[in-house]
Computed example of a mutant assay.
Amino acid sequence: MMARKYRLGIMRKAANVLVTAFLERGIPIAGSTGWLLTTRGRRSGADRTTPVNVVEVGGDRWLVSPYGQVGWVHNLRVDATARLWRGRRRETWEVEEADAATAGPVLRAYVRKIPVTAPFFDAKLTDPAEAFAVEADRHPVFRLARSRV
């Protein structure tokens, strides 16, 4: 069975609006590690904000794109500054994109922590990290490298 393709349909847009409203007010979503990520648009230069989950693996914090090569991924590749916020809490980070070998364990941990994303992966929850590493080109991973307070 092949992984589902991500489509930003009306239901997902509505869910993003709802999640964003909660996170703007600092209200956590049950079972979530949610933040709002603001990046600089690679073409427009305008700020772009989207809800994301941040996971901790191996003592580092990571941004994972379970839905593939989405806009914020392209933006971070051009300007490696991630502004994370939730309510009044604000963090600014320089990010580094992980190679496949590094991304494998992070992707595995991400899918286990946020299983709603599992259908977008070919690897299954029980597969080893190496199976997730094979998918790293389809699910970019960024380490929150240096805080820029």
Rank of each mutant, 00 (worst) to 15 (best):
P105R: 07
G58N: 09
E135M: 12
T33R: 12
D137T: 13
A129D: 12
S147W: 02
V17Q: 15
A3S: 07
D79H: 12
W85M: 04
N53Q: 12
R108I: 07
A46N: 10
A80H: 11
D60L: 03
G71P: 10
R108N: 09
R143A: 10
T39K: 03
K13R: 15
S147C: 02
W85T: 00
A98M: 04
R43W: 14
R143F: 01
A21I: 05
G41F: 09
E24H: 14
N75M: 10
N16Q: 13
T81I: 14
A30C: 07
G31L: 08
L144K: 06
G45Q: 08
T38L: 14
I114A: 05
D60K: 13
A109L: 00
I114V: 10
F121T: 00
G26L: 12
A131T: 01
L107F: 06
T20L: 09
A133K: 04
T38F: 06
A133S: 05
G68C: 06
V54L: 11
E56T: 13
F121S: 00
D47Q: 11
M2V: 01
W93V: 11
E135T: 11
W35E: 10
R89C: 05
L37F: 13
T49C: 06
G104P: 01
F142W: 01
V95E: 03
T50H: 02
R42V: 13
L37Y: 11
I29Y: 08
R83E: 07
R77D: 13
V111R: 10
